[in-house]
């Protein structure tokens, strides 16, 4: 049924559960599984360029570690996970990548790293489920 699955992966507990579900689904459906990590922007309204550069370097390093950990977890299950990272707003970027890549399922953890903003603006999972161009599975 599913041929190409996109996993939104931010390294959180919810995302790890979604990865486990994704590995199982990919095995059952003989599907491609891609993990996407969206690197959120640098701090808004910075006072120094140094702050922007340091935060960007930190985010780059963190993203690499998150994706490495996801690949390692997949390898333990004997699965070769494809990974990619993008810059931008998480929900918008996940939806955009799903559309551009002709994915037929998006997997997303119920609670990620949206933090305080999610309490006011809704979680990434909620936004993706409302606007995605394909089926969405929210993993609890």
């Amino acid at each position: 049924m599913f041929k190409k699955i996109l996993l939104a992966y931010d390294g959180s507990g919810g995302a790890k559960r979604a990865l486990d579900a994704g590995l199982e689904l990919a095995r059952l459906h003989q599907a491609e599984l891609w993990a996407l990590t969206v690197q959120e922007g640098v701090p808004r309204f910075s006072a120094t360029i140094d702050e922007v550069q340091e935060e960007k370097a930190f985010a780059n390093q963190h993203t690499l570690e998150v994706l490495d950990a996801a690949r390692a977890r997949a390898r333990e299950r004997g699965f070769d996970l494809q990974t990619m990272k993008r810059l931008g707003h998480p929900a918008q970027t996940i939806i955009q990548v799903a559309g551009e890549g002709d994915f037929d399922l998006i997997l997303v953890g119920h609670s990620g790293l949206s933090g305080v903003w999610a309490k006011f603006l809704g979680t990434t999972a909620e936004k993706v489920s409302r606007h995605a161009p394909c089926s969405v599975l929210i993993v609890r």
């Binding site: 959120e40 922007g41 309204f45 910075s46």
Partner: peptide
């Protein structure tokens, strides 16, 4: 707070 909400530490 800055790390949590993504607004620069100066502000």
């Amino acid at each position: 707070i800055s790390i949590r909400i993504g607004i620069s530490v100066a502000l």
